[in-house]
């Protein structure tokens, strides 16, 4: 049975520390936009922590919500791509094939979550940041779209390792960078097709909701609502 990768994010546990954002940048060779470009609305974070205020001061409460690609089963970004750069893998991931992308940006407009990013310029890493580039992840050139991959390089690495050792993948054996770096353990990653996995267990929670679930995109990221 193929894997079906999914994530559960417990909003009760998220402290909004943004360690996931930093880890993602480091793992996936995402350049920082810089002050100037950020002011023009061109920040590039494959995962971002959205911050909403509830109520009026002084009774205001803050709500954090990490948003990354929801890896939808019925992804609006996929059918609109004319070159199949945006497509669905057999393991349920929304993949982006950089070589095929011509940069129509249609997928980014079609995505209700705004989690697809465009390379407005060629990426630049100031010295010595160029030395920390991850060799497992390709660097994206100007004019193409990119997005969260659930750290597909780690998924494939673990699968190859398990196959070499002639064994099944173990739950929690590897994690995407954001999950790995989440100190309050608000994020859990795993295989939904494995009923014993932590992700499967948490997804059954009564607190489970989907972000913009009413749109029918069938996301694979599950949010556990706040109780407190």
């Amino acid at each position: 049975m193929p894997h079906k990768w999914a994530m559960v994010i417990d909003l009760d546990r998220c402290t909004g520390c943004e360690a996931c954002v930093v880890a993602c940048h480091a793992e996936n060779n995402i350049p920082t936009a810089g002050e100037d470009q950020a002011a023009r609305g061109r920040t590039k974070h494959w995962i971002r922590v959205e911050r909403y205020w509830e109520g009026e001061f002084p009774n205001a409460r803050i709500r954090f919500q990490p948003v990354l690609c929801q890896q939808c089963d019925a992804a609006p970004c996929e059918p609109v791509c004319p070159t199949y750069a945006s497509y669905h893998t057999s393991e349920g991931l929304n993949a982006q094939v950089y070589n095929r992308c011509v940069g129509t940006r249609f997928c980014a407009n079609a995505c209700p979550y705004n989690v697809r990013f465009f390379n407005f310029y060629n990426p630049v890493w100031e010295k010595p940041l160029n030395l920390q580039l991850n060799p497992d992840v390709s660097v994206r050139e100007v004019g193409i779209m990119e997005k969260c991959t659930f750290c597909v390089q780690r998924i494939h690495g673990a699968e190859i390792q398990a196959e070499a050792e002639k064994r099944e993948l173990k739950d929690g054996e590897f994690n995407p960078a954001c999950v790995q770096s989440c100190s309050p353990k608000a994020m859990v990653f795993g295989d939904l097709n494995d009923p014993a996995s932590e992700v499967s267990r948490l997804a059954k929670s009564g607190r489970n909701t989907k972000l913009l679930g009413e749109l029918g995109t069938l996301p694979n990221v599950n949010y556990l609502e706040r109780n407190s």
Binding site: R42, T43, N109, F118, G143
Partner: peptide, 15 residues
């Protein structure tokens, strides 16, 4: 030469 960045587009206004 520079990329679409010389336009005013941004995230999320891609068109």
């Amino acid at each position: 030469y520079h990329g679409i960045g010389v336009w005013g587009l941004n995230s999320p206004v891609f068109w």
